[in-house]
Design a binder for these strands. Structure first.
Length: 595
RNA sequence: GCCGGUGUAGCUCAGUGGUAGAGCAGCGCACUCGUAAUGCGCAGGCCGGGAGUUCGAAUCUCCCCGCCGGCUCCA
């Protein structure tokens, strides 16, 4: 498939599978040097600049600065021009090793307090600095040999960023950029950014009339329009069917619950971002999670070990007070519906249950066109920040690992990134453009069973604590559909397309026949629309294409005469003389195998 | 929440102190048309909200709100 690779000596594929002229480490070096050249340009242009950090990131780099001047978009052009000039000077980039003390003195003299702080925190007693002309930066390197190598780059955006990512620290100004080995690669990357913008679910959501987030409603609150609601309904129907197959019981809880319940669960005390309000002197909270209700269902009667595992499923709508600055289309909202389930089982059953959940999750994801994943195991944070015994943490973590190994899943460990109440597995999905999205999460909960004193009776007739596994498969409807829209670029497969076909009469002469075809298809369960506007057929075809409708069914006098339809698909392929019944079967077949 | 940007018709966007504009979408009329835009016409705006400066504000200033790009946080 990649046989043409041979013609590229140092050719490599980048992380998203695109052919690039440099391997990952060469690109990394180039980008790092580009960041230095940018920092030099900023320093030369604005004088008193305090440099923070300037690492490489996926596809590029950034550098954080502190200075009195506030960057404007116009400054970006000036900085790019200055970078070009610096590159042209072709300064040698020289590595120098020095003792930490020397370096500290050097950067004190240069009025670079952030660098001094970095040096103090670095292990070892020597550091390296890199010099190009008058510009000196603390840096591990390596770098390109000359500034001239820095050629194909573009500064992309300005942003604020806290020093060391801590909001208690000073807000710095960050400039993001990208850099590549050749002009073509840079151009390809910029084209790719364009493509990503074209697929933006917020843009497609509006254009395809799927959903909106009206200002009148409040930030982060979604209304689903008819077409979006069809899409969402199809996904929910699929989920319900799959959960039934896999032995889940459906439960339903209310949206508001007394604050005392949130005190029992601990959400109240830990300052979970909830909404609280008062009813007749009694304080209530809107649920940010579904678990307490599920636990109360569990606790509604004594449970025997024979009844376990118990799996409760709910498409549970929750509300969380997300900080205003983090809201983003469907991907980060304040009200959302999780495909949430809680599994209560014995310790001995835990591993098998997790195996089942993983199997379930991957089956669902493949159905929606996600075939590549990255899996992360998040382990226990510092012990004093967590609940639960060492033994239980170990047991839970081992069960997660064993289940992944059972499936032969390659995973990376995110040490200390588990929740305070237990370890978890996060699955990230890779979409059509190679981007990662948050997907299934499986968490073992060592906290709530204790807090709610959840028990079952064992064969020894004694009370035991069940293991509680909290898991979502698609995550939330909102976030998942956002990802789905971008993954398909709005071109949903037939089984998910809100409108599967548009009947487009060529002229009024075929209007009656078109109406008949429309009724026949609708009667057969095809999601079909009739475009009987007083417009040309070209215009109707165009409308359907723009709406990314899978099939446009053109009917004119010819079709009316022999009782057929002309089927045009989204790629522009046209099949004439198709019987409506055959088309209906074709659609039904695709819906059956979800394609 | 914080830093920066931004907000004009349903959508995309012009309009830098002197009576609010275009294209598309919508509605009407004509045309009756064969696979990505037929023509003509008509409607449509508290220029995000509030306060101020000014004879006069979409335009200048301040406050608030939303959105966008990030930081932090997360399904």
């Amino acid at each position: 498939m990649y046989s043409y690779l041979c013609s590229f000596h140092t050719a490599d594929l980048d992380r998203k599978g695109f052919l690039v002229s440099m391997d990952a480490s060469e690109l990394d070096i180039l980008r790092h040097s580009t960041a230095h050249v940018m920092a030099q340009a900023v320093t030369e242009l604005f004088g008193d600049v305090k440099l923070a950090i300037g690492p490489t990131i996926e596809d590029g780099f950034y550098y954080d600065f502190e200075l009195d001047h506030t960057f404007t978009p116009e400054d970006i052009e000036k900085i790019e021009a200055k970078m070009k000039e610096i590159a042209k000077r072709n300064l040698p980039i020289v590595r120098e090793e020095m003792s930490s003390e020397q370096a500290e003195i050097l950067f004190e003299e240069l009025h670079q307090p952030y660098k001094v702080e970095l040096i103090r925190d670095l292990p070892g007693d020597t550091v390296t600095v890199f010099k190009q002309g008058d510009f000196i930066d603390l840096c591990r390197g390596p770098h390109c040999s000359y500034t001239k190598k820095v050629k194909h780059y573009k500064l992309l955006s300005l942003a604020g960023a806290y020093w060391r990512g801590d909001e208690k620290n000073a807000m710095l100004q960050r400039i993001y950029g990208t850099a590549w080995g050749t002009a073509d690669e840079l151009a390809a990357y910029l084209t790719r950014l364009e493509e990503i913008a074209q697929r933006d679910h917020r843009k497609l959501g509006r254009e395809l009339d799927l959903f909106s987030l009206p200002e009148e409603l409040g930030p982060g609150l979604v209304v689903w329009h008819p077409k979006g609601a069809i899409l969402r309904g199809l996904i929910e129907d699929f989920l319900k069917e799959e959960h039934k197959k896999r032995g889940y019981d459906f439960v339903v809880g209310p949206h508001i619950m007394k604050t005392s319940l949130w005190k029992t669960s601990g959400h109240y005390q830990t300052g979970y971002p909830m909404y609280f309000f008062d009813i007749e002197g009694q304080e209530y909270g809107i649920k940010p999670m579904n678990c307490p209700a599920h636990i109360l269902v569990y606790k509604s009667q004594p449970r025997s070990y024979r009844a376990l595992p118990i799996r409760y499923f709910e498409l549970g709508t929750v509300y969380r007070h997300e900080r205003s600055g983090v809201l983003h289309g469907l991907l980060r909202v304040r009200g959302f519906t999780q495909d949430d389930a809680h599994i209560f089982c014995t310790r001995a059953q835990m591993e098998e249950e997790i195996i089942g959940v993983l199997d379930f999750a991957f089956h669902c994801l493949r159905t929606f066109g996600f075939d590549e994943y990255e899996v992360m195991l998040s382990t226990r944070p510092e012990a004093d920040k967590t609940v639960g015994t060492d033994e239980n943490w170990e047991l839970a973590t081992n069960a997660l690992i064993a289940a992944m190994e059972h499936h032969g899943i390659k995973y990376t460990v995110d040490p200390g990134e588990g929740t305070f109440y237990g370890p978890k597995i996060d699955v990230k999905l890779k979409d059509a453009l190679g981007r990662l999205w948050q997907g299934p999460t499986i968490q073992v909960d060592l906290n709530l069973p204790e807090r709610f004193d959840t028990v079952y009776y064992g064969d020894d007739n004694a009370q035991h604590r069940p293991v509680m596994i909290h898991r979502v498969v698609l995550g939330s409807m909102e976030r998942f559909i956002g990802a789905l829209i971008e993954n398909y670029g709005g071109q949903f497969p037939l089984w998910l397309a809100p409108v599967q076909a548009v009947v487009a009469p060529v002229s009024e002469k075929a209007a009656d026949y078109a109406a008949d075809v429309y009724k026949e298809l609708r009667g057969a369960g095809v999601r079909v629309e009739l475009n009987d506007k007083n417009e040309t057929i070209s215009s109707k075809v165009r409308d359907a294409q723009m709406q990314k409708v899978p099939f446009t069914l053109v009917v004119g006098e010819n079709e009316a005469a022999d009782g057929t339809i002309a089927v045009r698909d989204r790629s522009g392929q046209d099949r004439r003389g198709v019987k409506a019944a055959d088309f209906i079967e074709e659609v039904a077949a695709a819906v059956r195998d979800r394609s």
